[in-house]
């Protein structure tokens, strides 16, 4: 097992008596890509903020590896229009030398925008800039909050693909929130379905059969995902380990093949 980057034990976060994150356990290792999915208000953002160390836990523990460098890619960069900012200056605010900033921008494919104003970037360009900004610090852990929001469908697949490549290059862990179920299922090692508590977690192909997943997302969604995965399992078998473009995932070699149901998972509240 790879080095553990973050371990969460029994983490709960409550706001004004309302439980937003309920007794979550989670371990994130170097090389993992974990995606958190779940309905609105499920506590996904609160959970990653706790991992980032910017949201205090009400109870439970979060342990981070010593000297852990986190690269955070927020959902948006709400830049005040009164603040003039070029891509170059924004990258340099990381405190890293310009050469490294430029190579990070090259890696995410936006180095041609070096002199552009951050205000004028498209959704996809902004996400790639934020990704480069996270990369330049050579993170051990990448944390992304809906990285593909505001990106067109082709761009989304490419972005998830890039995240996977970066995981391989940096040998870092990745944890992200996503609503793009199909893409997530294809690009992720492990999915956590959150609805305050962890409803179910496991490998993408298995989780879509999980009763708790079906209950949370509805049967049509689960079935469409199952079909999708059948297709990709098949192509995976034909071509062996697929790398590069196109959705690929690797389940073979893992010792678990079934989704892990969280004990005591009850859904009386919806």
């Amino acid at each position: 097992m790879n080095e553990t980057l973050v371990a969460i034990e029994n983490l709960s976060v409550r706001f004004d008596g309302r439980t937003v994150v309920d007794r979550v356990n989670l371990a994130l290792h170097r090389g993992d890509i974990i995606t958190i999915i779940g309905p609105n208000g499920a506590g996904k953002t609160t959970l990653i903020k706790a991992i980032l160390g910017i949201q205090a836990a009400t109870s439970g523990r979060i342990m981070r590896a010593k000297g852990l460098v986190i690269g955070y890619v927020p959902q948006h960069l709400h830049l005040e229009s009164t603040l003039p900012l070029s891509v170059k200056r924004f990258m340099q605010l990381s405190g890293q030398p310009l050469a490294r900033c430029i190579s990070a921008l090259e890696r995410t494919g936006v180095s041609h925008l070096l002199e552009a104003s951050v205000h004028h970037l498209s959704g996809g360009e902004q996400q790639r800039l934020l990704l480069a900004r996270a990369l330049v610090r050579k993170p051990d852990l990448l944390v992304l909050d809906e990285p593909a929001q505001g990106v067109d469908i082709n761009g989304q697949a490419a972005l998830y693909d890039l995240i996977r490549q970066l995981r391989d290059e940096l040998n870092c862990g990745v944890i992200m929130i996503s609503h793009d179920l199909h893409l997530v299922m294809a690009a992720t090692d492990k999915v956590i379905c959150l609805n305050q508590h962890v409803c179910c977690s496991g490998y993408p192909a298995d989780i879509s059969h999980d009763p708790a997943f079906i209950e949370t997302f509805g049967r049509p969604v689960a079935e469409s995902l199952a079909v999708y995965h059948h297709h990709h399992n098949h192509s995976h078998d034909l071509h062996g380990n697929v790398v590069g473009s196109g959705p690929s995932r690797s389940v073979t070699g893992h010792d678990e093949s079934h989704a892990e149901r969280q004990e005591g998972c009850q859904h009386e509240h919806h």
Partner: peptide, 14 residues
């Protein structure tokens, strides 16, 4: 100061 003005949470993470 500039980083926390641009994105407070990102600044805190850093």
């Amino acid at each position: 100061l500039l980083m926390s003005t641009i994105h407070e949470e990102m600044a805190r993470v850093e």
